[in-house]
Write a protein that binds this DNA or RNA. Structure first.
Length: 581
RNA sequence: GGCCCCUUAGCUCAACUGGAUAGAGCAGCUGACUUCUAAUCAGCAGGUUGAGGGUUCGAGUCCUUCAGGGGUCGCCA
């Protein structure tokens, strides 16, 4: 139930009736007519821009349209007051029974209140994390993991059929580097002194893998040339790393539906097929690229390569799919992978990348556009850097020095719930400060705590009510006489609740899960505010001694807030707190 | 140099994809604790939305020029 779209229907109906009466010209497009919460609550409960949007095509003055519309809408039983304001806004004040209905809808709907069918069950593929299988996940991956996962949940909530997918980059040269590094640890496990030259991974996390390799093959690979062991160690090492990564993701509560191997694209004709598909569209040619403008690399030499004419689909320059030695570039299997996604029948694709892949966006979109004839949209969300702080001091991570902060470090210190919530309190394309001390602080400064506290507070109120002999289970609350909820302070909370279904759709349409986090923070604020009004005006307290009926109505409102917080946290992948300690 | 992202209160950030007087938190100031947990609440103060131009009934939001910050730029992935 979305009260805003319900009232919007009433507005459209009124406009249509006005056309029938000749008060508005025929043939108007109503799609830009919006019903929104006004920025200032003093203006009313809802506002519509109908008159202003239609003024120009109708060749009428906005206020004239608004006046007629106001009269019509005022006849609707759901509308208490309709008044024209400003340049032609129409402000509506709604009957209290509507807000009471929102509370009931929240209680009846439970976790599903606000769930939408907007997505029309369309198949959408969300690809995220996709970190190289060369080591444990670090903080940067954590943000992508949390963002992608929350986005997937959000899309599910608004009615898409979502697949969560991880692309394993196990086909390129970095896997050879991994294999050589594991081999060194293997020799070390056999008691040899080893050094880690440049171009190998010196991280401690491979010690165990080296030992495990020793367990498996014994002395078989000692003093053997690379061609004897490389293939096998590659496989062994990537499997071990993926196991590590899956465990990392699990500690954060992220579970993928599918892991897709880059390697599976090689030697199976799939890359060739994808490139052939582009070739059939006349988008593949042999050519020489211009050097990058302005800055010419010193070792630049013109080379003939196989190129993809990505400029035909919005890119700035054409992109190589083959290196000058004839081997595939990284881009080629990626084209094949996205071709496969299109082939699997997804209606929409979303890739979540780190900000360092920004330069990759246009060519990937070009490829998908070409391969799907523009039918499958690809949205690429870039997650910006996470800056870490401890005791107010920034600390840097350096992969080379092996001092990088892992996902596990973060989760172990602050827990998965805090990690997830904090990572979602910023837009994905804005940098994020993550302060280990602040995120654990129990104060209003810390949004995680503030929202959790609101939920816990409701749980506490219900516990108190029950110990005072007032039944407050969900079934009882849903059946309560909500007409007792008529105080402005209570209506204000219900009004916020009414925004939830609408907000969810906006967040889903824009692929912006952070909006959920911000909304929960605001909703929590409403709850805390109402709670404290009870200190000054005891008639606003949730528990009214000796009056079970009134108490149940008021607790129903509080419970509805908890239900929405719980549903919202569910989308973010955070467990609501029952009590704070 | 090309391309992408960012620039909003002293600080950290919102602003419902073009709506009304740009909102929160922190820091600062004022007030409220034998409470349905004050781990919170109420209030005050704080702004030329980086700068200029444009589009229109209306711009933080769209277009354009410029400045500053970050990322990225064939044979790495």
């Amino acid at each position: 139930m979305n009260l805003f779209s319900e009232i919007r229907v009433a507005v459209i109906d009124a406009l249509t009736a006005m056309q029938a009466e000749g008060k508005l010209p025929e043939g108007l497009d109503f799609k830009n007519v919006a019903v929104e919460p006004p920025r200032d609550a003093l203006h009313g409960d809802m506002a519509t821009n109908a008159a202003m949007v239609l003024a120009k095509p109708a060749k009428m003055k906005p206020r004239d349209i608004a006046e007629v519309l106001a009269v019509r809408l005022a006849e609707d039983a759901r509308v208490d007051v309709a008044e024209v304001a400003g340049p032609g806004f129409l402000n509506l004040r709604l009957a209290p029974v509507l807000w009471q209905g929102v509370v009931k809808a929240a209680l009846d709907g439970g976790q599903d209140f606000g769930r939408s069918t907007m997505g029309g069950n369309k198949k959408v593929n969300v690809e995220y994390v996709s970190a190289n299988p060369t080591g444990p996940l670090h903080v940067g991956h954590t943000r992508g993991a949390v963002f992608g996962d929350a986005l997937a949940s959000l899309l599910d909530f608004v009615g898409f059929d979502v697949t969560r997918e991880y692309y394993i980059n196990d086909g390129g040269g970095q896997v050879d580097v991994l294999a050589r590094s594991v081999y060194l640890r293997y020799l070390e496990a056999h008691g040899q002194e080893v050094a880690f030259p440049d171009g190998t991974y010196p991280g401690d996390y491979l010690i165990e893998t080296g030992k495990a390799l020793k367990e498996k093959v014994g002395t078989a690979y000692i003093d053997q040339p690379e061609d004897v062991w490389l293939q096998d160690v590659r496989l062994f090492a990537t499997d071990a790393m993926m196991e590590l990564i899956r465990a990392d993701l699990k500690s954060l509560g992220v579970v993928m539906d599918k892991f897709y191997s880059e390697k599976s694209l090689y030697g199976t004709g799939r890359i060739e097929a994808a490139i052939a598909e582009l070739d059939a569209k006349g988008l593949i040619y042999e050519g020489v690229l211009e050097p990058p403008k302005g800055k010419k690399p010193e070792d630049w030499e013109p080379r003939e390569q196989t190129l993809f004419k990505s400029t035909e689909h919005g890119d700035d320059v054409d992109r190589p799919v083959k290196k000058s030695d004839g081997a595939w570039t990284y881009f080629a299997p990626d084209i094949a992978y996205h071709y496969d996604k299109v082939d699997r029948g997804f209606d929409m694709l979303i890739d979540v990348f780190g900000a360092d892949h920004g330069g990759y966006v246009k060519r990937m979109k070009a490829a998908v556009s070409a391969l799907s004839d523009g039918k499958v949209p690809l949205d690429i969300k870039l997650t910006q850097l996470v800056k870490l702080f401890k005791n107010g001091e920034p600390f840097k991570m350096s992969k080379r020095a092996g001092t990088f902060v892992t996902l596990r470090d973060v989760v172990d210190q602050v827990g998965p719930d805090v990690t997830r919530f904090v990572m979602l309190t910023r837009k994905n394309d804005a940098p994020l400060d993550f302060d280990f001390d602040k995120v654990l602080e129990q104060s209003k400064d810390n949004p995680v705590f503030y929202v959790q506290y609101a939920h816990a507070r409701v749980c506490s109120v219900i516990r108190n009510a029950e110990s005072a002999g007032i039944t407050a289970d969900d079934a009882t609350l849903a059946a309560a006489d909500l007409s007792k909820l008529d105080h402005a302070a209570e209506i204000a909370v219900a009004r916020k609740l009414a925004e939830w279904p609408r907000l969810v759709e906006i967040a889903g349409r824009t692929n912006e899960p952070h909006r959920i986090a911000f909304f929960l923070y605001e909703l929590a604020g409403e709850l805390h505010a109402l709670y404290y009004k009870g200190n000054e005006d005891t008639s606003l307290r949730f528990v009214q001694e000796g009056d079970a009926d009134t108490s149940q109505a008021k607790i129903a409102l509080a419970r509805a807030v908890a239900v929405v917080i719980s549903a919202g946290l569910g989308i973010l992948g955070v467990t609501p707190a029952q009590e704070m300690r």
